[in-house]
Nucleic acid binder design. Structure first.
Lengths: 205, 205
DNA sequence: ATTCATACGTACCGATCGGTAACATTGTCA
DNA sequence: TGACAATGTTACCGATCGGTACGTATGAAT
């Protein structure tokens, strides 16, 4: 579900020129199709057809399908950090509550019927080749997420913050995958509870 | 790395007929290529070329590419349970030690340079459509793994065994994904330590 | 030696893949 | 009104996709 916010910002160049409308429609449709059915599974023909545009329009706005996929993932990345920061901002100075808020939301999100996993994680699975435009977006996101989780673990006062931060990342990625494998009632439903248990144990160590 | 054991069993029919040698070569090559580079990324032409056979040979042994992929995953499933049961058999009656042994091995395995995640998880990501031959193999595997992990958590005496079992599954899936995202030195390295912490906390609850 | 099933190879199928060339049409703003 | 940028139209490219029709080699039993 691509939000309309920030899309123009992601598409238009730094001049305040009028943003092409076709590019937005293309990216919206690509976002939906790539996420729901996979990048490799979707051809550019289907994208332009569903977007009501033509192929040359796609290639005027995006240099290649791979770069279109990367644009989709950059949008996904943006929305991810919006969700993450919402949880963080809701509990200023309380890293543990921030984690709890974020993971509670993840637990719900991953149980939704249309949930199909993390778009960036999925893309990395679809494109194992190092340096692929779609893959690097995901790699950067995960690296940054790891950094922040470790920092939050340290802020909680965990003796071994790196291990706890990594443990939280494992739980999160596990929830992403389990959500799309099991659907409703799967292991992802208990991600927040397990994280809390893990945090508790790590702080007392 | 497909082991030669059990392959004939997986290929040949229940009559003790002589198994076609081409099918084994095809499955071996398909296993390697599908795992390393993804199922959708590999065409049947490349498989038969690398296997030194021809396309009709492939379609005489396997009804379709999708079914070949399913055969690859059934082989992967077989080897998965071999690894799992090795850890279990090494510590009879001690579920906690069994988990520790298995996860220690997972932690190492997911750090190897050629590691590319769990073949079944990856296939489920590549084929989100319900009922796809490749997907169902993975779904069955995960369902059974969940059942066994929950049973082991109960055997440990966890008050909320289902939650602990699910937590372990989340950590495992997280390790699979993180292994291929981060490689050496990634969060997967601490999967066993985090699992132990989580178990400890769950038992004391 | 002939038979007969089985495995294999050559050549091909239509469809789709990502991507492009060349040109017509539109809407907007000066 | 003229100019310009964005989009559309049509047709095409070579490559690859999964899959098959059909003839040929091979090996064991008779």
């Amino acid at each position: 579900m691509p939000s309309d916010k920030n899309i123009e910002l992601a598409i238009s160049d730094d001049h305040a020129s009028a943003p092409p409308k076709a590019a937005k429609k293309i990216l919206d449709v690509a976002y939906d199709l790539f996420y729901r059915r996979g990048i490799r599974a979707i051809g550019v023909d289907e994208i332009v057809k569903r977007a009501g545009v033509t192929k040359p329009s796609l290639y005027r706005s995006f240099p290649s399908k791979d770069e279109l996929a990367a644009s989709y993932l950059r949008q996904y990345d943006l929305e991810f950090w919006q969700r993450f920061d919402e949880a963080v901002d809701a509990h200023p100075g309380d890293a543990r509550a921030q984690i709890r808020a974020f993971l509670t939301r993840v637990g719900k999100r991953t149980q939704m019927p249309q949930y199909r996993g993390c778009g960036m994680t999925n893309a990395a699975v679809e494109y194992p080749e190092r340096g692929h435009p779609a893959r690097v977006v995901g790699e950067d996101n995960k690296r940054e997420l790891r950094r922040r989780l470790r920092a939050m673990a340290a802020a909680m006062g965990a003796p071994d913050a790196d291990t706890l931060g990594d443990g939280l990342l494992l739980l999160i990625e596990g929830a992403y995958i389990s959500g799309q494998l099991f659907g409703l009632g799967g292991p992802a439903q208990s991600v927040a509870a397990n994280a809390d248990l893990l945090i508790e144990a790590s702080l007392k160590k």
